[in-house]
Amino acid sequence: MKRLALAAVAFTLAATPAHAETRTFTVTTRDGAPINGQADLPSAPARTTIIFVAGTGMFDRDASFGRSNTPRDLIFADLAQRMNARGLATVRYDRRGLRYGATGAERIDAALASAATNETQVNDLAAVYAWAQARDGLNARCVIFFGHSEGMAHIGRLADTGARRPLAVIGMGALLESPRSVFHWQRTGRDAHSLRMMDTDGDGRTTNEEVQANFMRTPSGVWETVAPFLSPSGAWTAADIEALPSRQETLLYAPERAQILAQADDAPFPSAQTPMASYAWIKSFFTDETPIAQRLARWDAPMIFHYGSYDSQTVAARQEAAAAPIAGRARFTLHANRGHSLGEHPLFGPIDETLADQIAAEAAEAARGCR
């Protein structure tokens, strides 16, 4: 989960929104923090509500995570409109410590943001879930969770608390293996995996020509610079690629792990000037070995997962391999030439428009099971 400093992007999605009414809300989570968000309601009364849960980063309710410089970069706002058009209510909320609509230094409440842990983020989601179901909230009869990336970890931890089973769970680039294993792969396995993908003729060697031609269609394309992947000899041998993870373990992962685990749990991460969480949160990516799929298994609900073929963060095969605890209730779809947010980039959106409509249609189909 690459850590990104995302600038606030001001967009107006459409002159004629697909929803008939917007309700803003504030809920108070267990530790007293205010969590703000909005519910968008379709023109006809909706029995089912979709709750969106964002991944790693200081995301507000719109989840700006695209490169098109269009309103479609607001990937949650865009998906919400598609779901509203299909008769579903949607709920989106701001990460704790974010001031929606503010810019610059005013956008982040440093004290709230730096106190974020896995526990607080689950409590924040639980408070939003309770509001969506409450009579004096949205009074939703059924709820479907939509999680992107680490957002599925928050959903899984909520399931593990014994929270009420939702109607369904939908994931995009969703984390199902353990936080420790996914972060270890990102630091020590991603580049070797990508170099093998670049070997398009299958001869066991990845030439610089193959790197140049295929780099951006692999998970390592997230780095957006090809130079470190060009071999001085003109090609990576199978032995070179095989040795790469252990080199990265020694040179990158081990020092980073030692540095992070040495910090106080309540220290602001990555710094007091630009906090997004506490060190307790980032430490879990080095210590938490419980697969998220194991946590999700507390819910006997249908689950739908979408992955791109060159997802930079959560490789589909690894997530499906971790999904044994939810076998029989989970469906996986792999999309060719798409990344972590089902767009053309290995990490960023916007979501391919056809796939955004597909996800909205799947949510509407799942909602037919609401009784």
Rank of each mutant, 00 (worst) to 15 (best):
R61A: 14
N84A: 14
A277S: 13
T48C: 03
D311T: 09
L230V: 10
N214E: 06
G234Y: 09
I75K: 04
A54E: 11
F11I: 02
L195R: 09
G339K: 10
F229K: 09
H19L: 05
T237R: 05
G104V: 02
G97I: 12
A316N: 06
D288H: 06
D300Q: 15
E119L: 10
P291K: 11
R329N: 11
A322M: 14
R329F: 07
Q358H: 10
M216T: 09
I155R: 06
A127N: 00
S220P: 09
T90L: 04
R30K: 15
G137S: 05
L74C: 12
R205A: 14
R371M: 08
L13C: 07
R67A: 12
V315A: 14
A316W: 15
E106I: 00
Q263N: 12
M197Q: 15
A262H: 06
L355M: 07
Q294S: 15
R135H: 08
R30V: 06
R257I: 01
T56D: 13
D288G: 08
Y253T: 01
A102S: 14
Y279F: 15
M303D: 02
G234A: 10
N139I: 04
W185N: 13
S194K: 02
F215S: 02
H306V: 06
A213C: 09
R141F: 07
G221L: 02
F59S: 11
G32M: 08
R205M: 13
P255C: 07
M197K: 14
V222C: 09
E344H: 11
G104E: 00
S64C: 06
M276R: 09
D60N: 12
I75N: 03
D109T: 10
A366E: 15
M172P: 01
A321Y: 12
N118S: 13
E177Y: 06
G349H: 12
E289I: 01
S233I: 07
G369S: 11
I35E: 01
G66Q: 04
I144D: 03
Y93C: 00
A317C: 01
K2S: 12
A115L: 05
S114H: 00
A33E: 10
T103N: 13
P245V: 08
E353T: 13
S181C: 00
A264L: 11
P245Y: 10
V53H: 03
S43G: 07
R295D: 08
Q212T: 15
Q273F: 00
R164L: 12
R164W: 03
V9H: 15
T225Q: 11
F145H: 10
E224I: 06
T188A: 14
L167T: 10
N118W: 05
I51M: 05
S43C: 09
I170G: 08
A80I: 07
R217I: 12
A316T: 01
Y279T: 04
A159L: 03
V143L: 09
G32E: 08
F332M: 07
P275E: 05
W223D: 15
G369M: 07
P42S: 04
P17G: 07
T49P: 01
F145P: 11
M216L: 13
R298L: 08
